[in-house]
Design a protein around this nucleic acid. Structure first.
Length: 820
RNA sequence: GCGGAUGUGGCGGAAUUGGCAGACGCGCCGGACUUAGGAUCCGUUGCCUUCGGGCGUGAGGGUUCGACCCCCUCCAUCCGCACCA
């Protein structure tokens, strides 16, 4: 018997699969479609185990669906713009494009060495002209729809990366990529108006029944919708109005101060008339110099300064002090907040620190509050309004509504919905991205580059120095241009787009990757979409997955496609960890996929990674475990070789022995389980364990003669079930015994009659404790079982001297006798 | 603080609808084959035991004939958001 030699057979089959048409997919209305997609990688240079896990999962899904009769789209590509390429240019003087394409070449070779079933003809690389041309085209579409705008704003700036960042890319006040502190800068930047879609992005989360709840909750929190009242206070000294937003209008009679963000425009006006202006300015400067972390952490000290100016509470005419504070966020709501110390935790702390008034306006009738002894705010939305003029006596709900009605009737306020979500800052002061296709004309101002002039190509005469300006601004030939409108002197926008824009529509491009008239044809994107199964890491729960949902809705409104959500089902795989920590170079616990594949083969690597943990959980890397998977493949190889003669010999139409019937039952039970595990649950770990049990059962026949028909059936179905998991060994063994290509066969179906057992072992319990196992005919009903109970061998012994209270029978499971 | 998850042998994990806890794999131990074994095959392996059985799924309570599973109260770990008014 020849040895299992993965290196040899994997190379052989990969060559077969590499044929141009092997995995080519086209639209086909005769079969149901299935779009299986793994998040495309950044071409960092090498695959890591996270990639291997991602693609192994996706490949099982895709290959299973192919065998199950679906027309499967399973593409791969590269998220190829981004900083590392540019950093390589700065550090080593290589061109970002050269660096990127060399990495893509290397990683593609590694992906092919995994034996993945991709239609490589559809490969997408976001840094190629034929792709970013359409990224720019889409930017212009957004612009024309009023969803792209340039605005001066206080934005997040990372010194290390030399660029601005979107809110979603700031994690704990730090850059998502390089972990260095982010600070605020005032810059004119391009934004996408994602807030226009906030309501729909939130509401449609309900449609995403195939998404993990965790991800939906994260997006819900990120969007952060709240309902309340926006109303204004008169500021007599300035003859001005100042608006606040509140979610607790019911507490409006308890307002004792008003807090402004240091950035609020009213602060400057106050300084113009206030004798304390020097002090106020100093305070604002100090607050603004604090980092985002210091300013926005709930543990930070709340500080403020009284401006000396007051305003009027429109509900009761009361005079309210205006303070400037460090804890009010300028970008949210109106940048000004009403202060109700008695019914808000923060306001309580602030008022206590500065000795401000506290007026109780809500009491809890079920457990009346002892106001004199209260040492914190009462924030429950339960109770009755007090000290609230004509609203006194109303309960929370009634008061909440009545006070908003009053504000609207009197014309000083309006019901308002607010979101935590901010517009998406998309410009980057970097080179290796899609240039923003805008021209600034001295006469005409901001002008889009005409569609026929796209793409705006990246120039190569640039200097890769970091600073507040994009490297594009160092290119003469890029910068200077003529206005497409008036032909006069103009210059180009030198910022590029956030790479998350490129990745917000790549899955649409896969459906029509060679289209040179449009980003994609409507009928093609509609045929394949939505993605039936999207697979990737949880780290994109907000960023990529929210942006992509936004893009889909905009393109739907622009009539480019006809569905609401891009990803019907989402699978968030766990991380690959080793020795209790994520694999990382600094910890030295990295296991290289290349090494594992070189040593054991891709099939072993795939098998281990699918077997070692459920897909959603973190996976503990174990070198011994890998050997176990290798051992299993050897066992498969061996047993089929042992069965070889039987498989190849003609059927003798012999009846099966009892043992063979039982083995055949195991086979069909396994088909049932593996099918359900793979199709319904992504429970690859248990599917594989069932296959191991089947192979173990086959090994019991290694020294016996086996019925040829059964041997053939076992070999066939086992290889068919193994094919999605370990494609190479399955193809090799199939070719030894059977005609055709295992990967072009149909998924096996189980024979229901083969599964039926005549006898079944049930449990005899006394008071819920297992006392005996008995074999009985299958299919006895409750009544039969209850009658059977007293006749069981150990019944008398187990119930001796006890009183039988009742007998509980569960067909095919157990009999429980309750005694006293 | 708010929100979401997770907690089962020495380890990774299984138990899909409230019905035999620990499938499968790793490791350990024993046996076979062998000049040899770090190959392979077969077997044992939750803990305690007076061998009848007792205990056991983070802790404590509850519902039930019966709970890893449902309910309540905690604890621990991980993740997300975090002064959003």
């Amino acid at each position: 018997m020849e040895k299992y030699n993965p290196q040899e057979i994997e190379k052989k089959w990969q060559q077969v699969w590499n044929a141009p048409d092997y995995y080519r997919t086209t639209e086909d209305s005769s079969r149901p479609k299935y779009y299986a997609l793994e998040m495309f990688p950044y071409p960092s240079g090498n695959l890591h185990m996270g990639h291997v896990r991602n693609y192994s999962i996706g490949d099982v899904v895709a290959r299973y669906r192919m065998m199950a009769g679906y027309n499967v789209l399973h593409p791969m590509g590269f998220d190829a713009f981004g900083m590392p390429a540019e950093n390589a240019a700065i550090a080593h003087g290589v061109k970002p494009g050269d660096w990127t394409f060399a990495n893509i070449k290397n990683m593609t070779a590694q992906q092919k060495a995994m034996g993945l079933a991709y239609d490589w003809d559809r490969e997408v690389e976001t840094c190629r002209e034929d792709y970013y041309r359409w990224t720019q085209w889409l930017f212009e579409l957004f612009y024309k729809r009023g969803l792209a705008y340039k605005k001066a704003a206080s934005v997040n700036w990372c010194d290390t990366c030399g660029t601005v960042l979107a809110n979603e890319q700031v994690i704990d006040g730090k850059c998502w990529r390089c972990d260095s502190e982010v600070h605020k800068k005032n810059l004119a930047q391009w934004f996408f108006k994602i807030t226009d879609y906030a309501d729909e992005l939130l509401a449609d989360l309900d449609k995403l029944t195939g998404w993990p709840n965790r991800v939906k909750v994260m997006q819900e929190n990120w969007i952060g919708r709240s309902e309340g009242l926006e109303f204004f206070f008169e500021v007599p000294a300035l003859n001005e109005k100042i608006s606040v937003y509140t979610t607790r209008p019911d507490t409006s009679f308890g307002i004792t101060f008003l807090a402004l963000a240091p950035e609020h425009p009213l602060v400057e006006k106050i300084c113009a008339i206030s004798p304390k202006s020097a002090e106020i300015k100093k305070f604002c400067e100090r607050a603004r110099s604090q980092s985002d972390i210091e300013r926005t952490s709930s543990e930070s000290e709340k500080e403020g300064i009284f401006t000396g100016v007051t305003c009027v509470n429109p509900f009761n005419g009361g005079s309210v002090q205006i303070w400037v504070t460090n804890y009010v966020v300028f970008e949210y709501g109106t940048g000004a907040v009403m202060g109700v110390p008695t019914h808000d935790e923060r306001d309580w702390m602030f008022a206590t620190k500065y000795g401000l008034n506290k007026v109780w306006v809500i009491d809890n009738p079920n457990a009346p509050l002892d106001f004199a002894k209260m040492d914190n705010a009462y924030v429950e939305k339960v109770g009755v309004l007090i000290n609230s003029g004509k609203f006194t006596g109303m309960d929370f709900d009634a008061g909440f509504k009545a006070i908003m009605d009053e504000a609207e009737a009197q014309g000083f306020g309006k019901r308002k919905v607010n979101y935590r979500l901010r517009d998406w800052l998309i410009s980057r002061q970097r080179y290796w991205g899609a240039p923003i296709p805008v021209i600034y004309c001295d006469k005409c101002g901001e002008v889009l580059v005409p569609e026929e002039d796209l793409p705006v190509l990246l120039p190569d005469d640039v200097e890769f120095k970091q600073g507040a300006l994009s490297p594009l601004s160092t290119s003469k030939k890029f910068n200077e241009c003529t206005c497409p409108k008036c032909g006069g002197h103009a210059h180009r926008e030198t910022d590029t787009m956030d790479t998350f824009i490129c990745s917000s529509w790549y899955y649409m491009r896969y459906t029509d990757p060679h289209n040179d008239k449009m980003p994609f044809a409507r009928d093609k994107v509609n045929y394949w979409s939505p993605v039936d199964q999207y697979i990737g890491g949880i780290e994109h729960a907000i960023l990529h997955l929210l942006y992509s949902r936004f893009f889909t809705k905009v393109l739907r409104d622009a009539k480019l496609l006809d569905y609401d959500e891009p990803f019907a089902n989402l699978l968030t795989q766990g991380m690959v960890i080793k020795d209790g920590a994520k694999m990382s170079k600094s910890l030295g616990n990295v296991v290289s996929p290349e090494e594992i594949i070189g040593k054991y083969g891709a099939d072993t690597a795939r098998l281990f990674i699918l077997f070692a943990a459920p897909v959603e959980r973190d996976l503990d890397w174990s070198d011994e475990g890998v050997q176990g998977s290798y051992r299993f493949l050897n066992r498969v190889w061996r047993i089929l070789n042992i069965f070889s003669d039987a498989i190849k010999s003609p059927d003798a139409a012999q009846a099966l022995t009892a043992e063979e019937i039982s083995l055949r039952r195991t086979l069909h039970k396994t088909i049932k389980k593996v099918t359900e595990d793979v199709r319904d649950r992504f429970a690859f770990n248990t599917a594989i364990s069932a296959l191991m049990e089947l192979v173990n059962a086959m090994h019991a026949f290694q020294d016996k003669k086996i019925n040829p028909a059964l041997a053939r059936e076992l070999a066939k179905d086992l290889l068919l079930m193994l094919a999605p998991f370990v494609p190479h060994i399955s193809a090799e063994l199939w070719s030894k015994f059977f005609d055709g290509d295992v990967h072009k066969q149909s998924w096996p179906t189980f024979d229901a009659t083969a599964i039926v057992e005549e006898e079944i072992e049930i449990v005899l319990q006394i008071n819920g404790k297992v006392r005996d196992h008995v074999k009985i005919p299958v299919g006895l009903n409750k009544n039969d079982l209850e009658k059977l109970a007293p006749t069981l061998p150990r019944f008398d012994e187990l119930t001796a001297g006890k009183k039988i209270i009742k007998v509980i029978a569960v067909p095919n499971k157990l009999i429980n006798i309750v005694v006293k």
